[in-house]
Write a protein that binds this DNA or RNA. Structure first.
Lengths: 250, 250
DNA sequence: CGCAGGATTGATATCAATCAATAACGGTGG
DNA sequence: CCACCGTTATTGATTGATATCAATCCTGCG
């Protein structure tokens, strides 16, 4: 269950600690002011909570401030496909805001802190601040790019390559937003999550991860995965890594 | 080879015949004027031409006026994954315009007519016409939604379900933009294209399509596929179909 | 201690890839 | 008009990858 702590502005956008990370593009003071105005609150969700449900029509848009989550879709009989993972700086709920209905669900993997916006204000954002509108489009294009790569992975990579791609991908993303600190292992997810991402069965996923472990590229402990050799994983996957360009952060 | 016939404005946007289709949202006169201004020409490409190449940095954005195409990515050793198909009304090259580098290639399946825009004018569009900026974002979100469904398909559907999904998906899309007329069968593509979309081998794709044919749901003739029973295909795939909402058209 | 959820493992069953031909078709040059 | 050719579609046989089934083993937790 997601626990609604307080829907008020707990941090002013200007002081948002994330804003200082290298991976994010700097915002002008005007833009920061606008975002502070646009922000309608913060939302704290517990690990395992469902944030948005396929078919629903949420009145909110969120920017992730902290924590891990994932987007997924299901078939009528329950088979599930994880579409992408969600990390700090990601904008979520855009599809729902624009197309009027979520076609996927979102769940948290860890406790999460989200910045809340009213979807009704979205059009006004485009009107008042073209640069922020542009940024949102930028983020949408970036999500599309990640999905393209995932699709290539699930469609054409072998099981081992897929696993290697997934883990190096998440490792890079997490590192950039400071979510791979010394104390934190890596990803707070189970092998079931991995299998639903890779489009493989749980058993086969386990055997595949084991191979990566034998080669000392990763280490699985408890409910998370340590990345020991990102480079080698990328090599196995035939993946070039994420672009270095700083991205917008709302 | 793509043949550049003439890069001038051959049709004013206001008279664009596509604009009258039900599937597209109507544009205000101001918006139409803006687009006419933004439009820098038309481009005619022949079937089989490569429009954009992974890694390149095209100065253009396009809206499709006519014809079929597809986006794809490849692995270093040549394995190819088709990401999505391109039909009239689609905006292409947005990733390249925003993120500065194409991460996928685009090829035509039939002769194609494209409306050309300068990517440098994109930011100005957001500034001058927030509603058009919003529309572009809308289109990006729609593309994302299609990719989500493809990913679910490739990751979790069986071969038969995937094929059924793909064909009903294309059938719906084509019908809406009037590309399934009496005289035209359906899609001008080969089974190799199908296999690269579904993430299956060519042989297995052939056997799978054959099953759909035996059940009288499709008919393969020459280099194209007739859809005989879209409803049944959707049922097999467990797919609900595209949303009915009219979409923006630039 | 006893559970429950997650990770592992070995055996077996399927699905899909690969290999190897052959057939069908459209286009070309003679 | 016909022989020739390249591309695409089709098929059967075989191999290989992945799914499924069925246990067992952990580990954190009440």
């Amino acid at each position: 269950m997601a626990s609604r702590t307080a829907l008020k502005k707990q941090i002013s956008c200007g002081k948002c600690p994330l804003r200082d990370l290298d991976c994010f593009r700097k915002m002008s003071p005007t833009e920061v002011d606008f975002m502070s105005e646009f922000k309608s609150g913060e939302f704290n969700a517990q690990a395992g909570a469902t944030l948005l449900v396929e078919g629903s029509n949420s009145p909110h848009l969120y920017t992730v401030l902290e924590g891990w989550g994932f987007r997924y879709k299901s078939l009528p009989d329950g088979r599930r496909q994880i579409l992408n993972f969600i990390l700090p700086g990601d904008l979520i709920g855009l599809q729902g805001s624009l197309l009027n209905e979520m076609a996927h669900s979102i769940e948290t993997l860890s406790d999460m802190v989200l910045c809340v916006f009213e979807r009704d204000g979205l059009y006004n954002l485009f009107k008042s601040s073209p640069s922020l509108g542009y940024d949102i489009t930028w983020l949408a294009a970036r999500e599309e790019q990640m999905l393209d790569e995932h699709l290539l992975s699930v469609g054409r990579r072998t099981a081992l390559e897929r696993a290697a791609y997934l883990i190096s991908f998440l490792s890079q993303r997490a590192r950039r937003v400071g979510h791979l600190s010394e104390d934190q292992p890596l990803i707070p997810f189970t092998q079931t999550h991995v299998s639903d991402t890779l489009g493989l069965s749980l058993v086969h996923t386990n055997k595949t991860l084991k191979k990566l472990q034998e080669r000392k590229l990763i280490r699985w402990s408890g409910k998370s995965c340590h990345v020991l050799d990102e480079k080698k994983l990328m090599e196995i996957a035939g993946w070039d890594g994420l672009p270095e360009t700083p991205r917008p952060f709302l």
